[in-house]
Design a protein around this nucleic acid. Sequence first.
RNA 1: GGCCCCUUGGUCAAGUGGUUAAGACACCGCCCUUUCACGGCGGUAUCAGGGGUUCGAACCCCCUAGGGGUCACCA
Length: 488
Amino acid sequence: MSTNSKTTKTNNSIVRTRFAPSPTGYLHIGGLRTACYAYLFAKKHGGKFILRIEDTDLERKVAGAEEVIYNTLKQAGLHYDEGPDVGGEYGPYIQSERKASYGQYAQQLVKNGGAYPCFCSVERLEKMREGGATKYDKHCLKLSKDEVAKRLANGEPHVIRQNIPQTGTTEYADLVFGTITIDNDELEDGVLIKSDGMPTYNFANVIDDYLMGINYVMRGTEYLSSTPKYNHIYDGLGLEKPQYIHMQPIMRDSKHKLSKRDGDASFDDFVKSGYLPDAILNYIILLGWSPKSNDEKFTLKQAEEMFTVEGLSKSPSIFDLEKLKWLNAQYIKELSEEEFYKLATPFLNSLEHIKDLDKKYLCTLLQSRCSIIRDVVELCDFIKAFDNFDLNLFISEKWKTDITVAKAMLPPLLKELTAKVDMEELSNLSEIIEGFAIANGYKKGQVLLVFRLALTGSLVTPGGAHEMAKLLGTEVMLSRLATVIQRL
RNA sequence: GGCCCCUUGGUCAAGUGGUUAAGACACCGCCCUUUCACGGCGGUAUCAGGGGUUCGAACCCCCUAGGGGUCACCA
């Protein structure tokens, strides 16, 4: 249990949270959820949600990735109060543009003994590790002041390392995990400033969070055990430490995180295949967090009211596509006919075989049968793939029908329809079928089932017999019936 | 491997010493629409294992097992 739920106070200052992704590609579902929680926590407390781009690793930077992040966040409705493209008092919001500020803090830390220059070559470090060392041996900390000054003056390449005590323990209170205690001996003198002058994440992160007034740091659990290192930096500089909220990842299965590399879809991919942004958000918020109430379907706005740190899960959660689909279907049902039509149109337009049909009408049938918008494509399959359907579909235990029944029923039914049906409107279809059933000793349901199957060649169709007949039109209806009769 | 964290049905999960251990997805059954689907109702199924503590443990303690994270001039 969280030992610190009471410390979710705001220190009389406004809550400020941030989402700090690296521009290494698109924003995946896991990252988006982290952003969600940081957003919700800020909004719940009337605070600010900030976007910061962490691009100190020039190697991994991907062109255009920032825009993807901005767009995804906007599309998801996670509006940040400050960020690279919206500005704010604490800018710039891109780390590579903040280079100037890190050096001075590093120098101050060196002065205070919290860090030191290190001239060790990459080769020496490698050799050390090959020799079994698990962390840096503080070799350069032992250099004399004079020597350091001299080598610095000579412009020797060097990094700045953090100086961490080798004994004792460091502990802090995480708002979801409670007290975390780490032996200082486990902590390495990590690099703060790289030899190219750029800060590492470890350092930039701390300095930026401080400079930007971030008082609640919300991030993945991969930082749970390195947080003491960051606290040593705050302490070394005499800065007030933030509260920490670490969150477990979304898993693809019990052993693997959801990740791009393994082909797990991005937010954008989900949207493209017809998941509604609101439904995706709703689902991922619910995955790893639960409200006090039993509500499972809610808007972002409602989630802002309901959000509590206590509801965050301490264990990873497995992504369940089935449940997302179910939720998405709920959202689709709530769409107006026009909205659904608009969303379905791009998919429908790609289908040659339905180009002569009344798409508006089709959509009214389709809307309650889609889990995702893309489902409309498959639901329309019966319209073209008709000729060779499996005749065994006529076998129904419930309605006591089979191929023989169909063979007996269909020819007279076709005759009846050809003779009597209202060719324009199909207005009397129901009467005809009912009359036919009575006259021939069938139940109406039997006739309806066989008729619908003969008409569509499909067990599941986007509507009942009447709707399907109306959709396809009288001519197609009659010709399909004739075709099936021939096959029987 | 060292260290940190986690462990309630197939999945998401509620639960904070006394509950018939919620709810949702999925699954199964029934009903509705005299046809599928949608919808409605109901059902199957969970406290990782073992020791304690206690009158009483899913809840507290210990051990074991399993899983995740972390040990970079990546973030």
